[in-house]
């Protein structure tokens, strides 16, 4: 069964008098281990699609099965739990807590995980956070605050935060948008490595250079989606 299964998803927004049809009958299946990009211009609906996949927003119509469970019927608390356990977010602007160290930022999702699973101890949280920071190559920057780190390092902290709960899916929204091309390349390589270890990666981008490196590209335009698989990468 597909890890992500969207069935006849619609999303409407009311912007004053105007009704915007942000997503128009989206049907989409993504299997575990895929490396997918969602591309499109601003206003095409790609961010809305990502928010729905990431359980940050609910569709107006249709059903979304995540890991076999119908998420459209979930309570707000269940959605929080699913975000915590199944999904790791990486944002364009990193979204780190500015006054917390790299370690504290990475520990945070596990702190919340420990409220869902009482077996997670403080020691485990610390150990996992350090391991994950090591995995993204930041073992020497553990106690630095975000503003003491470079853009690439900050994004690595954000990736470590996304990874620390061992999610099935990494959802990255323009992860290289604020980085120079060399650093972008490094981050992309990191995503590739994670994907090779089995994590499903979905990157939302308007950069065709990045989209071209993905096996599967979902192009959004006016709320409609075009699914294409590239043979050659």
């Amino acid at each position: 069964m597909a890890l992500i299964d969207l069935k006849n998803i619609h999303k409407h927004f009311n912007m004053g008098e105007e009704n915007i049809h942000a997503l128009n009958n989206i049907n989409l299946s993504i299997n575990e281990g895929e490396f997918t990009s969602i591309v499109g211009t601003s206003g095409s609906g790609k961010s809305t699609l990502m928010n729905i996949i990431g359980l940050l927003d609910l569709p107006s119509e249709g059903q979304y099965f995540l890991d076999g469970v119908n998420t459209t019927l979930m309570t707000d608390d269940d959605l929080s739990k699913y975000r915590n356990q199944k999904i790791g977010f990486v944002f364009q602007s990193f979204n780190l807590l500015p006054k917390a160290s790299a370690l504290k930022n990475v520990e945070m999702p596990m702190q919340y995980a420990s409220t869902y699973n009482k077996d997670i101890s403080d020691g485990m949280i610390r150990k996992m956070a350090l391991e994950t920071l090591d995995k993204v190559g930041l073992s020497s920057r553990v106690h630095h605050l975000p503003n003491e780190l470079s853009g690439g390092q900050r994004q690595r902290v954000a990736i470590a935060r996304a990874l620390v709960n061992n999610p099935k899916i990494i959802l990255a929204d323009e992860p290289t948008g604020a980085l120079d091309s060399k650093t972008s390349e490094e981050i992309l390589t990191l995503f590739k490595e994670l994907n090779a270890q089995g994590t499903t990666v979905i990157i939302v981008t308007h950069d065709s250079g990045i989209a071209n490196r993905c096996r599967r590209v979902l192009s959004m335009s006016d709320g409609l989606m075009k699914d294409s698989v590239q043979v050659k990468i």
Partner: peptide
Amino acid sequence: REIGIRRAVGARRSD
């Protein structure tokens, strides 16, 4: 924004 981040990584409203 901090609240958004916390909610995104799994904090409930009650948290």
